[in-house]
Write a protein that binds this DNA or RNA. Structure first.
Length: 325
RNA sequence: GGGUCGGUGGCAGAGUGGUCAAAUGCAUCAGACUGUAAAUCUGACGCCGCAAGGCUUCGGGGGUUCGACUCCCUCCCGGCCCA
């Protein structure tokens, strides 16, 4: 069975550097599993092009990315990175699309005899790959979503109860996003497909590949420090003007930008003078990043297959063993 | 020194005789997640207890009252104004 490496962890944990080092060592190529770095033009705010050599035990220089001849693939430290900069921020993207895309890239990498290394912090997307999750084949219906968006959560829940009482039983009754999607699925499939074999996500029985998931372990205080430091760097790297440009030049609406969260959520508020000082802006983003890291860890904690390591040499050893056997 | 406003849970800040262990926001902690996942959503948060419930709180002390965070006296601390 073909083997795939996954490097995951909370924001600012130093995943990218580890992934690059592994790729260099084991002749690998990287597939980013980051729901925001996938967008073009969102660079500083997503940490795409920040130069960072702070991961302690790594023999790495700074990160810098260049395009290849076709202008498609990003290279960082000579390693190809896929799923970065592949779509416009105006285009809606989601985990199902990502899975299809990543599956294709993985086959391609394997076909060339190289090791695919998935690296990112978007747990939901990683799960889609690792567990080969099959989602109901129902594309977003924007008109319906807009219509349903006006209803109260209670109304949505009642609607779902009528359409699919089974799904209504275990859904988060107070979460409009979940409710709307469930209703959307019901409208075309009649009901939300049942999970396969007791799994909550409908996992296929046959997994095409074997995965080794390694989590970058880092104490909370240390992580907070790194988040703060990195945010400072991003501020001086032009995080604010990037957002300004995305809005003015690329014509991305404030609303759309704000939906990307964190910096993209608060910087528009700053530019619109709803947030008045840079200090306040910084605090808000910093706090948001800490909350985000927490949510990431809650998600990852559920997957007991993840091996949590903090030392690069141990990581390398694990990978070596995994690839050998 | 005189006057005045105020001192409430980690912070900010409501409450102004009982329905108050005390609104709300923030922080903190925990969690959810079936094509939005940096999104979206939930719970806990004085102390003890699984719970029912009990216990101790609203600057300190003393009163009034069946009953006080709320009223009175006094002391301590802070803001502002006048000297």
């Amino acid at each position: 069975m073909d083997r795939i490496i996954v490097i995951l962890g909370p924001t600012s944990s130093g995943k990218s550097e580890v992934a690059i080092a592994l790729a260099q060592k084991f002749d690998g190529e990287i597939i980013s599993a980051d729901s925001r770095q996938i967008y073009r033009g969102m660079d500083v705010g997503t940490g795409k092009i920040i130069k960072d050599k702070s991961y302690p035990s790594l023999p790495l220089g700074e990160m810098s990315r260049t395009r290849d001849r076709e202008g498609k693939t990003f290279y960082s430290e000579g390693i190809p990175h896929y799923a970065i900069d592949i779509i416009s921020p105006k285009t809606e993207y989601n985990s199902a699309k990502f899975k299809k895309y990543a599956d294709k890239i993985i086959r391609d990498i394997l076909g060339r005899g190289k090791i695919p290394i998935i690296c990112g912090g978007t747990g939901f997307w990683i799960k889609a790959l690792v567990d080969n999750v099959v989602y109901p084949e129902v594309a977003p219906d924007w008109k319906l979503r807009e219509k349903l968006g006006k209803k109260s959560t209670e109304e949505l829940f009642k609607t779902l109860q009528k359409l699919d009482p089974q799904r209504a039983k275990n859904i988060d009754a107070k979460n409009p996003v979940r409710l709307i999607r469930a209703i959307e699925i019901c409208k075309t499939l009649g009901s939300v497909p049942k999970p396969i074999q007791g799994s909550t996500l409908g996992i296929l029985k046959v997994e095409p590949w074997e995965f080794l998931q390694i989590g970058i372990k880092i104490p909370k205080e240390k992580l907070n420090e790194r988040i703060e430091l990195r945010l400072q760097k991003r501020f001086s790297a032009g995080m604010i003007s990037e957002v300004k440009k995305l809005h003015l030049k690329d014509k991305i609406s404030w609303k759309r930008l704000e939906s990307f969260g964190l910096g993209y959520k608060f910087i528009p508020q700053y530019l619109k003078k709803e947030i008045t000082t840079k200090e306040e802006l910084f605090e808000k983003i910093y706090q948001g990043e800490k909350d985000y890291a927490k949510r990431q860890m809650t998600w990852f904690a559920k997957d007991k297959r993840i091996i949590w390591l903090n030392d690069y040499r141990k990581i390398e050893k694990n990978v070596k063993n995994f690839l050998k056997t």
